[in-house]
Lab assay of single mutants.
Amino acid sequence: TYTYKLTDEEASRRAEDEWRNRGYDVRVRNNNGTWEVEVR
């Protein structure tokens, strides 16, 4: 499981799409203004 911490929502969406396209399960959540993109 990888977790990315990003401050930019758009960057988190791009990361989400990119990993999803590669067949990974992705979750995005906002934690106090930081976007966490979790990849498994």
Rank of each mutant, 00 (worst) to 15 (best):
G23I: 01
V26S: 00
D8L: 04
G23M: 00
T3E: 04
S12D: 02
W35Q: 01
T1P: 10
E18S: 09
R29W: 13
T7G: 13
V37Q: 00
R40T: 12
E38N: 05
A11R: 06
Y24G: 01
E18Q: 10
L6T: 14
R22I: 05
R40G: 08
T3P: 03
E10N: 09
R20Y: 04
N30S: 07
R13A: 06
E18H: 14
V28I: 12
D17F: 13
A11N: 06
Y2A: 08
R40E: 07
A11I: 04
T1V: 14
V28Y: 04
Y4S: 03
N31Q: 08
R27G: 07
N21P: 00
S12P: 02
R13L: 09
V37D: 00
V37R: 00
Y4T: 03
D25V: 11
E9H: 07
Y24M: 04
D17H: 13
S12N: 02
A11S: 12
R14G: 05
D8M: 03
D25F: 09
V37H: 04
A15G: 03
A15K: 11
V37I: 13
A11Y: 05
T1I: 13
E10H: 08
V37Y: 01
R27L: 14
G23C: 11
N31T: 09
E38V: 13
R13K: 12
S12C: 14
T3W: 10
E36S: 05
V39G: 00
W35M: 02
W19N: 02
Y2T: 11
V28P: 00
N30T: 06
T7L: 13
D8Y: 04
Y2V: 13
T34Y: 13
W35Y: 07
D8E: 06
Y24T: 02
R27N: 12
A11V: 05
G33M: 03
R29V: 14
R27P: 04
A11Q: 10
R27W: 11
T3S: 07
E36A: 03
A15D: 06
R29K: 12
W19R: 00
E10Y: 09
G33A: 02
N32A: 09
Y4A: 03
W35V: 01
V28W: 03
A15T: 12
R40I: 12
T1E: 06
A11G: 06
T3V: 14
R14M: 09
T7C: 13
D8P: 01
E38M: 09
E10S: 10
E10M: 11
R20D: 02
D8F: 04
Y24I: 03
G23A: 00
Y2W: 15
K5R: 12
D8I: 04
N31F: 11
N30V: 10
R20M: 05
G33R: 01
N32I: 02
R13S: 05
E18A: 11
V39Y: 02
R29M: 11
G23K: 01
E10W: 09
A11L: 07
V26R: 00
L6Y: 15
A15W: 11
Y2D: 05
N31R: 09
W19G: 02
N31S: 08
R14N: 08
E36I: 14
V26C: 00
N31L: 11
V39T: 01
R20I: 07
R20P: 01
K5Q: 13
E16P: 03
E18C: 14
S12M: 15
E9K: 07
